[in-house]
């Protein structure tokens, strides 16, 4: 966790609460590919306020997940920097993954306890916390079940409980509901909304779904296609606590429409669609090499 340790040392918790929680300056990430260095992200500049629910939308492969992985300390940036203001002494961040990534060999309860068992060691109130989050997410009856016996929605609840039980300063969510069906997805959004309004913390939430972004977020960031940088920023004006009824309102639809217009022109380059570019001839250099 070298990256996290470096982040810790930037500011030992002396800053005022009005400072941004996360400051991103010229952040870049490149990947090595068979065709050379590929820039996946950046340069990206962003400030995330303390306690803010920030949603990031953008086309596939725009580097959203890369950004989140940098924030989680799973990837080092290749340029620029990301600084996080540390307030507590607990875990800095926890992540909810798109494909759940809960362990099939652990029961629901063991999965939720995982984050407390590793790292700094189990806190004294570990059992209480596990019990609380199992209850809070409606998992108590399944505590001894294996993930293979659960539905997709239940698995994602386990993943959320696993992240929240460590009480991270920042919660990172990478398209957490993408694998769920449309109805279940709405139910989970409602649940997350209620949950967050009860336990406020800084959240960076990545999604493809504009409806989801507007319902949950305080602010929605639109990213361009690769290399991803910010092309739009929308404050979501609806007051908290919000409820799922918001979906039906005209303002909600209008904001969603506005974000979509921005995303379509800036990120998907709608202008290009009118005059399609000349088809590129794929260059194959190896037997199994993907043509790009």
């Amino acid at each position: 966790m070298a990256a996290l340790d470096e982040l810790d040392e930037i500011d030992p918790g002396t800053t005022a609460r009005t400072d941004p929680k996360i400051t991103v300056k010229g952040l870049e990430r490149h990947f090595e590919t068979p065709d050379g260095l590929l820039q996946a992200l950046g340069p990206m500049d962003l400030e995330v306020r303390d306690g803010e629910f920030l949603c990031i939308v953008g086309p596939s492969g725009c580097g959203k997940s890369t950004f989140l992985r940098i924030a989680a300390g799973l990837l080092d940036p290749t340029g620029g920097e990301m600084a996080v203001n540390r307030q507590g002494t607990g875990p800095l961040s926890a992540m909810v993954f798109q494909d759940y990534s809960i362990f099939p060999w652990k029961t629901v309860e063991q999965n939720v306890r995982f984050g407390l068992e590793v790292g700094a060691g189990a806190p004294a109130d570990a059992e209480e916390r596990v019990g609380y989050w199992l209850d809070r997410l409606g998992l108590a009856a399944f505590r001894r079940s294996y993930p293979s016996e659960l539905s997709g929605g239940m698995r994602q609840r386990v993943s959320i409980a696993r992240a929240l039980v460590v009480e991270p300063e920042i919660l990172l969510m990478d398209e957490p509901f993408a694998a769920l069906d449309a109805q279940l997805r709405m139910l989970m959004q409602d649940e997350l909304l209620a949950l967050w309004q009860e336990h406020r913390r800084t959240v960076v939430f990545i999604t493809h779904n504009l409806d989801e972004a507007v319902l949950l977020g305080d602010r929605v960031i639109v990213m361009s296609k690769r290399p991803g940088h910010i092309v739009g920023e929308f404050e979501v004006p609806f007051t908290r606590p919000r409820t799922a009824d918001l979906r039906g309102s005209g303002e909600f639809a209008a904001l969603e429409q506005e974000i979509w217009a921005n995303l379509r022109s800036e990120a998907y380059g709608a202008a290009d669609a009118v005059t399609p570019a000349a088809p590129t001839v794929p260059t194959r250099r190896g037997l199994f090499r993907r043509a790009r």
Partner: peptide, 24 residues
Amino acid sequence: NYLEPAQCFGATGLQTLRHVVLPA
């Protein structure tokens, strides 16, 4: 996707072995 959560929660090499690599 099993190793990343371990890294994310700050698991040491031995903890990753015990909780993730061995059972997987």
